[in-house]
Design a protein around this nucleic acid. Structure first.
Length: 428
DNA sequence: AATTCCTGGCTCGCGAGTAG
DNA sequence: CTACTCGCGAGCCAGGAATT
């Protein structure tokens, strides 16, 4: 414990040299201005800020209480999990003194959120100095028993390991072996990897949950502000950090609602305008999560859009989504759909510098092996060859290119020999 | 002072189908 | 019947992203 004190003392710098004048007489008042209070137990004290969101609270597009209807759908995040109960989910986010996962990184604020009866409660535990960490950890340790799942954003590899470290350093044990982790970063990436500039929680909540923060203090400011607080002991410095952390927790709940709804097969009204790339990723994700028929319905809807032409995206995006969808249907052995998409790609693709032959080759393979139509197979192989030939000058000496070329010529040769044989057989 | 998950690119080997 | 080729899935490896 004294080691910690020293370390923080060093961080505190010159201000630490001055003796703390006198215990502030209005200690509870100064925290009251942030809506917080000092929580005291036999284990010690720390600062607690509790915020209760009533039944009708809304965060962006979603009513917080809506998770009641969809929480059970989150079960499929883990195959060995029993049904997820709303009130057994613990939303979790920390503010720390840095980004490292080593022991030097201290979570000075632990934000948690949970559902009870008709409301959603956010509790923020804050330590005014290293000595308070013990009491905070004990509080959390006891509270955590009520829950089966931790819900976080990248908490699996960041917040949680850091927190566990603190338990070890405080000679405490956290009984977390039975806890399952719902890290919403990963499904977020599954859906928005290509449709958002980044999958940071702030980007996701703004563009997909409809929640906009005003005057947000970014997480990267948290360490600086905490050190400033340690130096000046003025709680007002931390207001922005409390608010930021609180929003992170509530956003986690909203995000859980978003995924819960998707898994339930519920497309919210505002998702009507969703881009094909995101629709495709959503379909793949539903499939990965074991919602096979839902995924199929979802992607078949996209297929309709693509083939009806009732879609409004850039040419480049249209082309790429055609190929992605074709590959999906090919893997599912739904060849007719795949073929339709490859053909559409060819029809729609203007002659460009970049030559892509995959769809031609796919069609050649399909006609050779599935339809046994050698004429068509040769037709598409030769189309590819012609395309390649036209661009040949641009790719002279490109090793990869000549490899493709040789493979293509070999294919054509083989197909023609094969057809020759068939001819002879039919003649005889 | 890290970790986890995911993806793209690569190789390897297997099964099916075909050539000899 | 044997041997080859094709297509594809599995496995491996490297690199990227998110967290304060």
């Amino acid at each position: 414990m004294s080691g910690l004190r020293e370390r923080l003392g060093r961080l505190r710098g010159p201000a630490a040299a001055q003796p703390i004048a006198q215990p502030t007489p209005r200690a509870s008042d100064e925290w009251a201005q942030l809506g917080a209070h000092v929580e005291t137990s036999p284990a010690g004290s720390f600062v607690m800020r509790r915020r209760v969101y009533g039944a009708d609270s809304v965060h962006g597009y979603y009513r917080l209480q809506d998770l009641a209807d969809f929480a059970e759908n989150l079960s499929c995040f883990h195959d060995r999990a029993g049904a997820v109960q709303l009130e057994e989910l613990l939303f979790f986010d920390t503010e720390t003194t840095g980004l490292g996962v080593g022991t030097g990184n201290v979570p000075f604020m632990v934000g948690i959120g949970f559902y009870t009866e008709e409301s959603f409660t956010v509790e923020q535990l804050f330590i005014r100095n290293p000595a308070e960490e013990h009491a905070m950890l004990i509080y959390l340790q006891e509270l955590i028993m009520r829950f089966t799942h931790i819900v976080s954003y990248n908490g699996r590899t960041f917040d949680w390991p850091i927190l566990k470290n603190r338990y070890v350093l405080n000679r405490l044990k956290m009984a977390d072996s039975r806890l399952l982790h719902l890290d919403l970063l990963y499904p977020s990436r599954s859906l928005w990897r290509n449709s958002l500039p980044s999958c940071r929680l702030s980007k996701v909540e703004e563009s997909r949950l409809g929640f906009e923060r005003v005057d947000d203090v970014p997480g990267s400011m948290a360490p600086v502000l905490y050190f400033q607080y340690l130096a000046e002991k003025n709680p007002a410095i931390l207001e922005g950090v409390f608010v930021h952390n609180e929003h992170d927790i509530v956003t986690l709940a909203a995000l859980a609602i978003h995924f819960g709804k998707l898994l339930h097969g519920e497309a919210a009204a505002h998702t009507l305008e969703i881009e094909p790339e995101e629709k495709f990723r959503t379909g793949l994700w539903l499939e990965k999560m074991g919602r096979t028929s839902l995924a199929e319905a979802y992607l078949d809807g996209l297929f309709e859009q693509l083939t009806n032409g009732e879609i409004n995206v850039s040419q480049a995006e249209f082309e790429s989504i055609l190929l992605l969808m074709a590959a999906f249907y090919k893997k599912k052995c739904r060849y007719l759909r795949a073929v339709e998409l490859w053909k559409r790609w060819i029809a729609v693709k203007p002659a460009t510098i970049a030559l892509q032959l995959d769809p031609y080759l796919e069609l050649a393979m399909y006609y050779e092996h599935k339809e046994k139509n050698l004429h068509q197979a040769i037709f598409y192989a030769e189309e590819a060859w012609a395309k390649l030939w036209r661009r040949r000058a641009l790719h002279r000496n490109d090793r990869k290119q000549t490899e493709i070329e040789e493979a293509l010529e070999k294919r054509i040769r083989r197909l023609k020999q094969k057809m020759q044989r068939v001819r002879q057989l039919t003649v005889n």
